[in-house]
Design a protein around this nucleic acid. Structure first.
Lengths: 358, 358
DNA sequence: GAGCGGAATGTTAGCGCTCACACTCGTCCC
DNA sequence: GGGACGAGTGTGAGCGCTAACATTCCGCTC
């Protein structure tokens, strides 16, 4: 019984090209042609084939196609901290841009950044025959570790990149930090304290450099530095120190999360923001404008970063050489958490200086 | 020149099983056996094959294997709002659990929830021959829309599920909400206001139901209700209304983000939290404990949810029927934002009632 | 009406793997 | 000492597709 012996495999096989061909009364190759370069097929035949495809609910078998062509049209992406704003936006950007180019993007999220996880992730992607891999891990070692794998496909790094590195796309961290700190200094603060990120992150180092540079170009000495680990908790601890030092009137936090913890500590110790202490963050988290008070921050365009990374990947796949994307210039979003030193609370507007929304 | 004519395909082909076989002096089938059920191969041969694999840097061709077996060992997952805490944690949970079971997880993030995007995403996954699809989209229509596709593979829904629906895993939203609101009522608040989520989200409805129920079982009438859309902005607007109504001493926000906006509005209007108004959220965002004041919230175990979804998927793939996972019971995390009505500010501890950390 | 050329289609041979089955050995038993 | 047996291995076909080549068909020219 039944029309098909289907002696092996798991689930029932879906209709094959041959079946479509039979139904349309043509050869399987004509079906293939319709699906690929329809140009050489007579319109009438084409329609007949298309109808057969429709009727059978045929869909091209990816595995067979890949086996025959050896081209997966798939890009791999590995990212740690998928739960964070930046990485997930980058991933989304890469995916969208990939789809627009007819590429599929295989995303692997690392539960944590270790050599082993990275190895596994890459392994998994290679199994999927990806044509290039985008690594969005900001750890200092990540880029090196990935290159150390000596893959035969292009590897694009994003985040934690040094300007000019081939096959990398990044955001100008130092410039962004300088922008933020300059803003505070120009408001009249004598110097600015810094809560830095972990030393083994390239970006932490770059933001720190921008902080120092902003002081330098104005002929000032930088304020005190406290080291954190990106977490709100570390920002909170830093805030406790800062709150006790009345010499500090402005703080540049290495990211928005630490700024959040910092604000918490300042409130707890009764220091007013921005009247007593101004705070500026980095990242542009969407929630930042609802922190108390609304957080002045440096906004990074992560989606754009993802898009650039993907186009680098494609260029490399097409053998167009190892290009580098220009660094993306971040922008400063001024809200209520930064003001001139000793400024009066400007009423309700204290909450958030952004126009339009709260 | 060269040892291989390699007349087609893109990049150079990697070594094949046949080449490994030749090098090891065995048949390709023996190599296959070593890779699969090593049991039937003599130890000595096995080692020889393994050595050849190592030397050649051989890796099994996934496409060929898939073509022959018709089993991809791949699960698809589609999620909207990948940038949000919940969805990304679920995705991570699914991925991890999948890997542990030897399955690969293909993740597609929807830039937005529309029928077209969903369609595309599913199409993409089908191309990859996934054996099941986990849909983590909480929109009311999502589950229906996905089922309407009449796929021949199992579809597991997660988020926005109704208890008892086959092939679904979820968190007890109503129970969680009841827990939160009960906490406020038991602190002595006469009634609790609610900032609800969008009406077309199942979860918004369920949390709302829990809010009502908590009042009901205590013989109270619920407080006023304001509708929001999950965003901090909508929470902020709701907060402006709540702040003007001194009758409101406690608010249950549909999620933590809205709670954040709500807090912002209350501060702006000079209403103290928790002395004048208590606030409780829902989600358990990691940042919540650093909001000002630390946010009492309902904590959901998203990773566990992801894990359960995956195991349902595997069970379905193995034809073990359309099971349902028990609803996960969320827990209440009490912090400084909730207190008895009219309570005095308990000094520094006001910031956060959690023990151990700030 | 033979011959030609290009458009349209068909035929065949793999891509690298797994599955089903065939085969070759020793070993053991009656 | 011949046959049964099982451990270990080899052989051939086929999964569904594409690439290269072969073939047919048709309208045209001279």
């Amino acid at each position: 019984m039944g029309e098909n012996g289907s002696r092996r495999g798991a689930g029932a096989r879906s209709p094959s090209m041959a079946q479509v061909a039979e139904r349309a009364g043509v050869s399987h190759q004509t079906v293939s042609r319709v699906l690929n370069d329809a140009s050489l097929v007579k319109e009438e035949t084409r329609l007949r084939v298309l109808a057969a495809i429709e009727e059978l609910g045929y869909r091209r078998n990816f595995a067979a196609r890949l086996l025959a062509t050896n081209r997966s049209r798939r890009i791999g992406m590995v990212t740690a901290h998928l739960a964070l704003h930046g990485p997930s936006m980058i991933a989304l950007g890469v995916q969208e841009a990939g789809h627009a180019e007819g590429y599929d993007v295989a995303l692997v999220g690392l539960p944590d950044f270790t050599a082993e996880f990275l190895h596994n992730a890459v392994d998994r992607l290679l199994d999927q025959a990806v044509e290039a891999i985008v690594v969005a891990v900001a750890h200092r070692d990540a880029a090196e570790m990935t290159r150390a794998l000596r893959l035969s496909i292009p590897v694009i790094t994003v985040q934690g990149v040094v300007a000019g590195t081939p096959l990398s796309a990044g955001i100008d961290q130092e410039g962004g930090a300088e922008l933020a700190v300059g803003h505070l200094l120009d408001l009249g603060h004598r110097h600015v304290a810094h809560v830095s990120g972990p030393a083994d992150w390239v970006e932490a180092e770059q933001r720190r450099a921008g902080w120092r540079r902003a002081h330098e170009v104005r002929g000032r000495l930088p304020g005190p530095e406290v080291s954190g680990d990106w977490s709100p908790e570390s920002g909170y601890r830093a805030g406790q120190l800062v709150a006790d030092d009345t010499d500090v009137t402005a703080v540049f936090a290495g990211n928005d999360s630490m700024a959040l913890g910092l604000l918490h500590a300042l409130h707890e110790r009764g220091r007013r923001v921005p009247e007593d202490v101004s705070v500026v963050g980095f990242d542009g988290l969407p929630d930042g404008s609802y922190y108390w008070p609304g957080l002045t921050t440096v906004h990074q365009d992560f989606s754009e970063l993802g898009r650039r990374a993907l186009s680098l990947a494609l260029a490399a796949v097409r053998g167009e050489g190892d290009a580098t994307a220009d660094l993306i210039v971040p922008t400063l979003t001024v809200r209520a958490s930064s003001a001139a030193p000793g400024a009066h609370a400007p009423g309700q507007a204290a909450s958030n200086a952004e126009s339009g929304r709260p």
